Simulated assay, not measured.
Amino acid sequence: MNSSASASLPAALPSALPGVPCGPLLAERLQIQPEVREALHSGRPVVALESTIISHGMPYPQNVETALQVEAAVRDQGAVPATMAIQEGRLCIGLSTAQIDTLGRAGHAATKVSRRDLASVLSQGGLGATTVASTMMLAAWAGIRIFATGGIGGVHRGGERSMDISADLQELARTPVAVVCAGAKSILDLGLTLEYLETHGVPVVGYQTDELPAFFSRESGHAVPLRRDSPGSLAQLLHTHWGLGLSSGCVVAHPIAPEHALDADQIDDTIARALDEAERQGIHGKAVTPFLLARVNELSGGRSLASNIQLVLGNARLAAQTAVSLSALSALNAPGAA
C-alpha cells in the first residue's frame, strides 16, 4: 500500500496487497465481517467468493443454498470464506446469512458490478453483486490472495470483430489475486481468451491437467502453459510469483470432476443455439452471460446448473487448500520466523 493510502486507513483495517492503489474513501466504505477481519489480522487463510453467482447465476432459493454450501466447503478445508457484495453503500468483505439471502431474493434486481460500476452503485447506496473483476478488487483491498469462482469471463465468440472482452481478463493482468476456476465459461472463445491472458503476462496453471477445462466439460482442445498437481505446489508458485514483485493475478484452471462433467459436443451444440437466440433478441454486454447460462440450463434440462454447482464446490475446496498452504508459506518466510 502506498503511504498516502495507508495514512487514510484506520489501524483496525488489514493492509491492502502490495502495489494495490487505495483511495481516501476506502476506509469508510470497506466493511469487513469480524470473523474475516480476525483471520486476516492473525494470518489465517481466507478465500474470497463472488456474489454474481447468487444474484444472476441461479434461481432462488437454490442460489442461497449453494452459496452457503460453498462457504461450508471452504471452512471444511480449514479456511475462512469471505463472500463479497455491495450493500447500503459499503464494500462488504464477508456476508451474513441474512445478507446472502437478500442478494438471492433480489436476483437480477441487484446490479451486476464490475470495476466500472463500483462508484455508481456505492454512491447511490445500491445493492450490488460482484463479478470476478470486482471481487478481485475487493479481495486485494482487504489483503486476500485466493479467490474461488465457477468460471472467469473472457473473449466472447466473435470478439475479434466486436471487441467484447470481459473486464475479468484486464483485472487478472493488474490485480495480484489467484482465481481458482473451471477455466473460462464455455460460451466464450477459449483460444482467444488464452491469447489475451498470455499477452498480459497472466499465468494460467492447469491443476492436474495439461488442458484448459471448458467449464461444463474437462477438455477444450487448448493446452495450458503450466501445470501443478497439489495445493502445496500451487502455493509455492504463487508465493514465488508475488515474491518477485509481479503484480498480475493467476488463473488456476481446475477441471470439473468426471462424474459431474457434461459431454463436450452436446454442450457446444446447446451453447451455439443459445448464442443464436441471444443475437436474434439483441442481448449484449453484461446481460449476455446471465442469459446464456439460464438458457443453456433450460435447454439441457437442468443438467448444466447441477454441473455448475458441483464445479463451484470443487473450486472452493481447492482454493481453501491452496490458501492454507500459502498461509503456511507466508508464515514460514515472515521476518523473524524461526
Rank of each mutant, 00 (worst) to 15 (best):
H222L: 13
V205K: 02
T193H: 10
G221T: 03
D210L: 12
A142N: 07
M137V: 15
D229E: 14
G221V: 04
V179M: 08
H222S: 05
V132K: 00
D168K: 02
M163T: 00
T209D: 01
P176Q: 04
P225D: 07
S230D: 11
S186L: 10
V180M: 03
A129D: 12
I144C: 03
E171V: 08
D229W: 05
L197Y: 11
I144K: 02
R157K: 13
L172T: 10
P231W: 13
L238A: 02
D168H: 03
I187D: 05
L212V: 08
L169Q: 05
A142F: 11
G159K: 01
L237P: 01
L197T: 08
D164F: 02
R174G: 11
R145Q: 13
E171Q: 13
E160A: 12
E219Q: 14
S162P: 01
G232Q: 15
V202K: 01
S166H: 07
F147P: 10
Q170I: 06
E160G: 00
V224L: 15
G150A: 11
V180F: 15
F147W: 03
A184I: 08
V180A: 05
L127E: 08
A184N: 06
P213R: 08
G128F: 04
G183K: 06
Q170K: 09
A214C: 10
A184R: 02
L234H: 07
P213A: 07
I146T: 11
M163L: 14
S230L: 12
L190A: 09
A235R: 12
G154T: 06
A139W: 01
S217P: 08
L238G: 05
R161L: 10
D210Q: 12
L226N: 08
L226R: 15
H239D: 15
G150R: 01
A167Q: 09
K185Y: 09
V177R: 05
A167G: 12
P231L: 12
S220G: 13
K185D: 05
G143V: 06
G151V: 04
L127S: 03
V180H: 05
E219L: 11
R228L: 14
I144W: 08
F147G: 10
G126H: 12
R228M: 15
T130I: 10
H156Q: 08
C181M: 03
G128A: 06
A173Y: 09
M137R: 12
D189P: 00
T193C: 11
E160M: 00
W141V: 04
S162A: 03
L226K: 06
T193W: 04
R145V: 00
Y196P: 00
A139D: 06
